[in-house]
Design a protein around this nucleic acid. Structure first.
Length: 272
DNA sequence: ATGGCAGGTACGACCTGA
């Protein structure tokens, strides 16, 4: 039928580590990769200085929730291809938080959520307890969102490497923050609600990561972790035709320490 | 075990990241 004539929709996520510093990289990347929806994390800016005009010139609209110095999330949508966002939610309904870590919006009948999961500092710290509580809130609200929105994409910096294959040195990282069983078990519970890690739907090159430490030549030595994910609800999984990490912008001058991750879905009609 | 790099704040170092 006409399903195959529907355009592809590209869904992406990128922790830009300061949108002020990275705006030129973002614009350069969007020109080469005109994705339809892009979740951003670590804006590190307040809403009054969000680059609305520059992004509109590049063909993108945005909804955003910023904060001074830390955190801050946004969703960019391609004006030419996407319906206007509705039902915008900031943060987790069940977890009141001063920190801006979640923004969600609906495009047609697609719910798109950009999340910046707590880092957690180190296992056993107060920040780690906050991370676990925050993740429990995310789990609870995702269960609710999935019941309401069958077509759902949850993207972002999860600060969790789900499997040892997502870690350059699993022995060194065993039990450490980003790799602990307490974090990984929560990630698996999230998948249990009816989400898939789109990256793992496909054969992938070994040692594919999305984050590399700035220090110790981490990127040059590919000492990385895959902690940025595009999760798709079961209703979208059959339509997913590709899921990749784009290492290219990590090679640019003064890069973010994270690379973008992109999933492609095909044959999905967005219904208003 | 430690520190190394980067961004922000604010002009000192210090906090946070992962």
């Amino acid at each position: 039928m006409s399903e195959s004539n529907l355009p592809e929709i590209k869904l992406a996520t990128w922790n830009v580590n300061s949108l002020k510093v990275r705006l030129p990289h973002l614009l350069q990347w969007l020109e080469a990769n005109p994705v339809d929806l892009l979740g951003l994390q670590e804006l590190k800016m307040t809403d009054d200085v969000f680059p609305v005009a520059e992004l509109e010139t590049a063909g993108y609209g945005a909804v955003f929730a910023g904060q001074k110095t830390y955190n801050g999330v946004a969703i960019l949508y391609k004006l030419a291809s996407m319906p206007k966002p509705v039902d915008v939610e900031v943060n987790l309904p069940c977890f009141p938080d001063e920190q801006k870590r979640v923004i969600a919006a609906t495009f047609g009948d697609l719910r798109f959520i950009s999340a910046y999961v707590v880092n957690g500092s180190e296992v056993g710290s107060d920040k780690f307890e906050y991370k676990k509580a925050w993740l429990d809130g995310l789990l609870k609200d995702c269960e609710g969102w999935l019941a309401k929105y069958p077509k759902l994409a949850l993207v972002g910096d999860f600060n969790i490497a789900p499997e040892d294959s997502d870690v350059h040195d699993p022995a060194a990282w065993a039990g450490q923050v980003l790799c602990s069983e307490e974090e990984r078990s929560r990630f698996r519970r999230l998948l249990g609600f009816g989400l898939k890690d789109s990256f793992r739907l496909f054969e992938q090159a070994p040692k594919t990561y999305s984050w590399w430490d700035y220090r110790m030549l981490g990127f040059q030595k590919n000492k990385g972790l895959r902690i940025d994910h595009v999760l798709l609800s079961d209703a979208l999984v059959p339509a997913c035709t590709a899921s990749v990490v784009d290492r290219a912008p990590r090679k640019w001058e003064k890069p973010s320490d994270h690379a973008p991750a992109i999933a492609t879905i095909s044959g999905v009609k967005l219904i208003n």
